[in-house]
């Protein structure tokens, strides 16, 4: 196996995430797309680790850090969406134009 095949797959996954992030209106679906992008990053980190194989297993350690940060991000993100939904009875990101100039 070569490393490029994993990198190209991760790039495709990341591009799918970017598309979802830009095209979705519902805030929960935007967060789902962000998860997809973070997953692509994890795939990259683990693939690089399989090339370098350093003594600290840095790639895998960083993948674990990314997973942890993603879990924190989902927790805070969903509670923000919940707050917005309570105040405006809508979780659509394009209707949140209160601070738009």
């Amino acid at each position: 196996m070569i490393v490029t095949q994993f990198l190209v797959l991760a790039a495709a996954l990341f591009a799918l995430g970017v598309f979802g992030l830009l095209a979705r209106r519902n805030a929960v679906m935007v967060l789902l797309a962000v998860e997809l992008m973070l997953n692509a990053v994890n795939l990259n980190l683990v693939a690089f680790e399989a090339v370098i194989r350093d003594v600290l297993a840095s790639g895998q350690v960083f993948a674990i850090f990314v997973i942890t940060v993603a879990a924190a991000e989902v927790g805070v993100g969903l509670s923000i969406v919940l707050m917005i939904f309570r105040n405006r009875t809508s979780a659509n990101v394009d209707e949140l134009d209160l601070m738009k100039w």
Binding site: T4, L7, V8, A11, A47, V51
Partner: peptide
């Protein structure tokens, strides 16, 4: 991203 990955690593084996 894909073209940069290919240009940088080509057929580097795992």
């Amino acid at each position: 991203l894909a073209s940069v990955a290919w240009a940088a690593f080509e057929t580097t084996q795992l």
